[in-house]
């Protein structure tokens, strides 16, 4: 059965501290989920577990029917799961173009002849330039990331994740540090170029951003799921508004 991501009873402990506790989630192919919760609720830990950067204390993770639990980060990336990072991570010594080439690594195939290699390289170049164009970075392809603004760096992080043509993309606070205008622009870019039929989990503190992109929202608090359902309903939930949005009464 072609299924998306399935997480069952996932727990993560750092010594005596529980970062995640018995979390279960199903993500259908093409579905976009917003993952919200207060700081320290385990959102990034969840992404780290799915992408193999950390290993769960208990529970299992499946993607397209294959178990990912205990697999290394690179083997999970090769299965078509890409991610961005809350703490911006780019290859600062590589040019913007080379950062994108690094992102293309997952979907590269060995060539049997020089001409096939050249054709693949040209196709890759076109794809990279088209992606950079989507994020208004094409003019900066030969620059190193130190010449980029924070917003452009976030866009590069996103564009690089997309370069691998992922089936599932995990975005960890992609709009952090952006102005409302920039956030709106990013939401539009995501809608047009990233989320068209692709599964995604988006972590973000900007509720309007989540509401614009995700039909379903999952709420974490202290490592436990406290709500899961249609975004508009979840955002009206009394407990969610009290715990996450800080509303009284």
């Amino acid at each position: 059965m072609a299924s998306g991501l399935r997480v069952s009873n996932l727990s993560l402990k750092y010594g005596g501290v529980s970062a995640l506790c018995g979390l279960s989630m199903d993500l259908a192919p093409g579905e976009v989920i917003g993952l919200i919760g207060p700081n320290g609720s385990g959102k990034t830990s969840f992404l780290n577990l799915v992408t193999g950067f950390e290993f769960p204390t208990e529970g299992a993770i499946f993607f397209e029917g294959q178990e990912l639990t205990g697999k290394s980060a690179q083997s999970i990336a090769r299965k078509g799961i890409a991610r961005t990072f809350q703490n911006l991570q780019v290859f600062s010594r590589l040019s913007v173009y080379e950062n994108m080439r690094a992102g293309c690594h997952r979907c590269s195939k060995p060539s049997s002849s020089f001409w096939q290699f050249k054709a693949a390289r040209n196709a890759e170049k076109e794809r990279i330039l088209s992606l950079l164009d989507c994020f208004s970075l094409a003019d900066m392809a030969l620059d190193t990331p130190e010449a980029l603004t924070l917003v452009q760096l976030r866009q590069l992080d996103l564009a690089r994740a997309l370069a691998s043509e992922p089936k599932l993309i995990l975005l960890d606070e992609p709009a952090a540090g952006m102005t409302p205008y920039e956030t709106d622009q990013l939401a539009k870019t995501l809608q047009d170029h990233v989320l068209n039929g692709r599964s995604a989990i988006i972590i973000e503190h900007k509720i309007d951003f989540i509401a614009a992109l995700a039909k379903r929202t999952f709420v974490l608090s202290a490592g436990r799921a406290i709500a899961d359902g249609p975004t508009d309903e979840v955002l009206c939930d009394k407990d969610v508004r009290r715990i996450y949005l800080g509303e009284c009464g």
Binding site: T51, G52, F53, S72, A73, Q74, S75, A77, R78, A82, R83, F85, Q89, V90, F91, S92, R93, L94, E98, A102, G103, H105, R106, R160, S164
Partner: peptide, 16 residues
């Protein structure tokens, strides 16, 4: 160069 600069990020690109 990717692996040399940031192994964690390189792994996220599917590099061993």
């Amino acid at each position: 160069r990717s692996v040399g600069e940031n192994r964690r990020l390189a792994a996220a690109q599917g590099m061993n």
